[in-house]
């Protein structure tokens, strides 16, 4: 079962994250931490004319937090607000909802469905997404 969770693709995102940096000129930014385990993450995004053009993150945490964040940044690039909402919801329900195939294309992120078998790690996989959702919510409410 260990092999199901720690696929090479996931480990590659953990070891060599392409999107792990502070994004200059971000107009969406959020920070979260998991007080139970001390994991910390910052998520950055730039939205130009209603479309997310770039996303990145900085994190201190386990392989699942980091791989999830790195894949998320790849996945959401180019999405509109409506796409983002649908993607975030699809990812969350893939981990927490009924055990069904996600109805939105999630690409490699689907590998993280294995996390369902490791209930204590679901929070890790969700942390970047929750951070992005909160950050988008905040930027929405700004004039």
């Amino acid at each position: 079962m260990t092999q199901d969770l720690y696929r090479q693709v996931i480990l590659a995102h953990y070891r060599q994250p392409a999107n792990r940096y502070k994004l200059d000129g971000a107009n969406v930014a959020g920070y979260s931490h998991n007080p139970l385990c001390g994991d910390e993450i910052s998520v950055y995004a730039r939205i130009d004319s209603g479309r997310l053009t770039e996303a990145s993150f900085e994190a201190r945490g386990c392989s699942i937090v980091q791989a999830s964040a790195d894949m998320m940044a790849d996945c959401v690039r180019g999405q509109t607000r409506a796409d983002l909402d649908a993607t975030i919801t699809a990812f969350e329900s893939m981990l927490e909802g009924p055990d069904e195939e996600p109805d939105v294309a999630l690409g490699d992120l689907r590998l993280l469905r294995e996390v369902r078998k490791f209930p204590v790690r679901i929070k890790c996989a969700l942390l970047p997404w929750k951070t992005l959702r909160d950050a988008l919510g905040k930027s929405n409410s700004q004039p």
Binding site: L5, C62, C124
Partner: peptide, 9 residues
Amino acid sequence: VHAHDVGTI
């Protein structure tokens, strides 16, 4: 390797 990954394995 993060301690959580150690713990899970």
